[in-house]
Design a binder for these strands. Sequence first.
DNA 1: GCCAACGTTGGC
DNA 2: GCCAACGTTGGC
Length: 155
Amino acid sequence: MNYWLMKSEPAVFSIDDLKLKKTAGWDGVRNYQARNFMRGMKTGEKAFFYHSNANPSGIAGIMEISGSAYPDPTQFERGNIHYDAKATKKSPIWFQVDVRWLMTFERAVALLELRQEPKLKDMTLFKRSRLSVQPVLAAEWETIIEMAGGILKGR
DNA sequence: GCCAACGTTGGC
DNA sequence: GCCAACGTTGGC
């Protein structure tokens, strides 16, 4: 069981949008490392929904991977902002997973708080600040859950 | 809106 | 294959 963190700008797609849709395809990722992480995801694994470019930026809630990776259709759509002329249906370049909303924290855990927590000092979030899909260690996951109010305790 | 960090592109 | 130029991410 692996844990993940996935970023989205709330102005583009927020955790509220996901809650409303229940399930969504995490499309538009155009970074190889992020793509490779998505290809390694398994159904049922959990991910933090991170709001970037937000006030404040931080972890807003939890979702679950609801299906393994498949080609991101936007790479084939001419005119789409994520269109990639080099991609073909025979050899797609970009992949996405489907995610399902699980919960929105009563209170988002802000980046500043994450940074101030010594247990989280080695988080990928700080080391590879631009990586939009990244793994989270189980110990880090637990720490953040506690910071969010221990909502998952007892489940 | 600025700009640091850093990933990607392309000339050589 | 190196690396400068360029583009993007994302905090502030």
